[in-house]
Simulated assay, not measured.
Amino acid sequence: MQVSAMNAAASPVAATRGSATWRLVTIESKLCLRDKVAPIWGVGCPLIVLIILGSLPVLRKPLEAAGGLTIFDMYVPVLIIFNLAILAMTALPATLAGYRENGVLRRMQATPVGPARLLTAQLVANLAIALVAMILFLAVAGLGFGVALPRHLIGFAVAWLLAAAALLAIGLLITALVPGRSSASAIGTVLFFPMMFFAGLWVPIAQMPPVLQTISHYTPLGAGMQAFQDAYLGHFPSALPLVILAAYAAGCAVIAVHWFRWE
């Protein structure tokens, strides 16, 4: 009887916690859309770049050295990574750092929300936006410019999830430590451009010197691109890039929760 009573008492508490987390996720998702930073910069900007590049005939000529792929074909996964990087380095830190700067986090500190629940809500909200953007990019590239889907869809899905988790965890880490929007924007920008370089946005990874190629493979975007390329070629991504992405995701998330600042 006593055990049953304890279980009955625990169930409403667990349900309340779960529903509170879901409500927080819903609210943060609405605020992300209302703030317009993530939709405009994280989705609109990469999509415009995708359409512009796809409209250039010189980028859509098959290359024998690339197995018949075009330069545009190779840029589609780069732009998917580009979308994740903008969300993680720009939109997410600006939102939560803005909360801290405006005193919202200080007021939330007195509630049972907790850093883990708040950061999870932001992670889920931005992950949903990134998922919509990725599907939109693949649809526009395929229907508008004839770019084939990744040949190994399951491998691509795993690579994308780990890349998204790794980059958003880095964004959460920035958010957990900086005092306000200006600091978050500065740090995010400083990290964004080197990361995009090692992802092959300006120079394809295969054309980099050997030293830079090695460095690229151990960066989150470089590892993500390596996993994407494996999936596009029809292979399940090799273990090393997936392990690197998982390590970034877990490590940065744990540090972000541990060192989170309310003020």
Rank of each mutant, 00 (worst) to 15 (best):
A169D: 03
A9Y: 01
L105V: 03
L96K: 02
E101Q: 15
A176D: 01
L168S: 07
I174S: 08
L177W: 10
P46C: 05
A163R: 07
V243E: 01
V124K: 10
R107N: 06
L240D: 08
L242F: 08
I135A: 15
I86P: 07
A15H: 02
A94W: 04
A128P: 00
I135G: 09
P210W: 01
R181H: 06
T219F: 06
L212N: 01
L118Q: 13
A128I: 14
M1S: 12
V78K: 15
R17T: 04
F192I: 07
T70L: 08
L79S: 09
A148M: 09
L47I: 13
F137I: 13
E28Y: 03
Q226A: 15
V43Y: 03
V13S: 05
A184Q: 02
A223P: 09
P150A: 06
F82R: 06
A231R: 02
G234A: 10
I81H: 02
A164I: 05
V257H: 05
A169I: 05
A166I: 11
A125P: 02
S55D: 02
V203W: 01
V49A: 15
H217K: 13
A38N: 02
V211P: 00
F72W: 04
L162D: 10
R17K: 12
A125F: 01
M196T: 07
A199T: 10
V211N: 01
I187R: 04
A247M: 10
Q207Y: 08
P237C: 04
F193P: 01
A85R: 07
L167Y: 08
L136A: 12
A65W: 02
S182C: 00
F193T: 12
L123H: 13
P204W: 07
L173H: 12
S238W: 00
S238G: 13
I81A: 15
G180L: 00
A165K: 11
A253Y: 13
V58D: 12
S29I: 00
P209V: 06
L162Y: 11
